[in-house]
């Protein structure tokens, strides 16, 4: 293990569930409003995971108010993430499912993983 990995080690979280692109996840993020902090959930489809030690991130896309697509990039190991729930697993063929940005409605469906059609 090299020096960088050793330094990163203590910042890595072990409590992150397994999920991948195509899965629907609900991320509970701690946010600050003035002096108060509260937990806000953000639920959507994971478009990609970027694995890079302590700098790992994942992107979640959801349909926000008024049908506007909203994407958020979370640092996977951030202490501000209180919980990640895997709501639904999805079977996709790409590791980066950016094509979902172009899809809406029926075309934006993703098949559940581990199920036969």
């Amino acid at each position: 293990m090299n020096v960088l990995q050793q330094i990163e080690k203590k910042y890595l979280r072990q409590d992150i569930p397994e999920f991948r692109a195509g899965d629907t996840v609900r991320v509970h993020v701690q946010i600050r409003e003035g002096e108060k902090t509260r937990i806000q959930p953000f639920e959507g489809i994971c478009l990609r995971r970027h694995n890079a030690g302590a700098q790992s991130t994942f992107t979640v896309r959801k349909r926000g108010a008024g049908g506007i697509g909203v994407e958020r990039i979370f640092p996977t190991h951030s202490p501000l993430i209180k919980e990640i729930e895997v709501v639904r697993t999805g079977r996709v063929r790409q590791a980066r499912i950016y094509y979902m940005r172009q899809r809406s409605g029926k075309a934006a469906r993703i098949r559940e993983r581990g199920q036969f059609r």
Binding site: I7, Y11, G53
Partner: peptide, 21 residues
């Protein structure tokens, strides 16, 4: 210069750091 990484502050902020031996 060993390389760069990022660490998390208590407040949750991610800060980029360079490791120097």
């Amino acid at each position: 210069k060993v390389g760069m990484t990022a660490i998390f502050e208590e407040g949750g902020r991610q800060i980029p750091v360079t490791v120097v031996r």
